[in-house]
Amino acid sequence: MPTLHDVDYTLEYPYTRTTGPVIGPFLTGLRDGRILGQRCGDRVLCPPMEFDPDTFATLEPDLVEVGPGGEVVNWTWVAEPSAKHPFDRPFGFAFIKLDGAHTSLVHAVDTGGDPEAMSTGMRVQAQFRDERHGSVADVYFVPEADAAEQVIQPGDEPVTITEHLIGLRITEPLYPHRARFAQGLLDGKIIGQRSPVTGKVYVPGRGYDNMSRVLMSESDEVEVSDVGTVVAFTELNPVQYYGQTETEPYVRCSILFDGTDQPVIGIDIRDMTVDEMRVGMRMRCIWRDPEERSVTDIDNRYGNIPETVYARFEPTGEPDIPADELKEHSW
């Protein structure tokens, strides 16, 4: 088994949410260094809510300042913070009943890493971060005795949108069949898997034949030709979404390699225009020199034949395959 890179990627999405008539003022307050609760009959709810949590009746926005001091009514100590926690050192999470509020806010308490400093009934005080974005993460709490005086400059416009960049980090080895496929590319070979039930050859293999519901292993693997036929293509005009690295239009195509039953999708063509592409066109892989090949873009879910292993795909000059004969593979 070749030793290749482990998969390590972070899937991120920037979420933007409208804030509404109650959360909006609450987040505006945090940006401006104040904590607001929502009146609900004789009570004040913090975190504020748009409805009475007992009757579910809608509450008219009626916000009142609470805190900045409060009392811990429940707590737990985070010995190993996650990447998404407010602190990268051990800290306490607590239910904090802010002065003037009747419900509790869940938030982080920084005791300088000391769990002994946490207790039910302890007094804490809000501290605001230097950089505030209209998010609940603009604030955190410290033991009252540790609180610093802060002068907070209010912002201008009310907070009507709150942004939250979510991220999921995935780390794992390449699955065995993915590792063999990737090693094949480094060796200038395209490795497929032949179904023991139907004889169909899939490239890259997924470790199973989903048509016959049978697992496949190394003994089912075959080297396939690096010459094939274009079965589909398109021009991509990169939209500048979060994380986009492409800036110029380019061609992406699917190629059915000779002797296989499933096209390899997502092959990028940089030296031909979309006008020069045809379904049925015969193409050959021109590999990079071995020392220039890299498969680090391949993970367990994405990456078929990346540009980091080939110099280009060039037309062979053979007659086209009639498109009609490729209908089964048009993807």
């Binding site: 949410r17 959360i23 996650s82 926690h85 982080a108 609940v136």
Partner: peptide, 22 residues
Amino acid sequence: PGSYREGFSLQTDPYVHAPIGL
């Protein structure tokens, strides 16, 4: 492969809980 603590914190309230990784 991932961190269930980070993934499942996204089940919580998106305004007052998820941004602090609860």
